[in-house]
């Protein structure tokens, strides 16, 4: 196993990408149930309103934000000759993602704790 910041970013990119696909499937499962009537929709919506799913929403936010900023980082590398700043760009994407996850995750967490 050859460890490096590039490898960490690659693994995170793959992991968050697969997580987002799984989320989309779950999202369609819930939203698509509207065709089955209000009872079915409300029942499925209730299953994703539990505290565990609130925590999962924070993880979802982290995945979305990291995947987006990692994509922006890669576009910068593709279009500009900036490979010498590869580590700084990775850390920047990671730190911005972490800050936005905290900023967006705290209200979700507080809302979940309030019940």
């Amino acid at each position: 196993m050859y460890r490096s910041t590039g490898f960490v970013s690659f693994v995170l990119r793959r992991f968050t990408g697969v997580a987002l696909v799984l989320y989309l499937i779950a999202h369609i499962w819930v939203i698509g149930s509207v065709n089955g009537g209000p009872e079915l929709f409300n029942a499925r919506l209730a299953t994703v309103q539990t505290p565990a799913f609130k925590l999962a929403e924070i993880a979802l936010l982290a995945a979305v934000v990291y995947h987006a900023f990692d994509g922006i980082r890669l576009m910068i590398v593709h279009y500009f000759d900036v490979t010498e700043y590869r580590k700084s760009l990775f850390y920047a994407a990671f730190v911005v993602s972490a800050l936005l996850t905290i900023a967006g995750g705290l209200p979700i967490l507080l809302f979940a704790l309030q019940g």
């Binding site: 050859y2 490096s4 910041t5 590039g6 490898f7 970013s9 690659f10 990119r13 890669l74 590398v77 593709h78 000759d81 490979t83 590869r86």
Partner: peptide, 22 residues
């Protein structure tokens, strides 16, 4: 190429294969 940059980090001659690929 997934732009992992390991090729740059590993090169003992400080070459830049990633930029060549780009």
């Amino acid at each position: 190429c997934h732009t992992i940059f390991n090729c740059i980090d590993a090169c003992p001659k400080s070459l830049n294969p990633t930029q060549a690929i780009e």
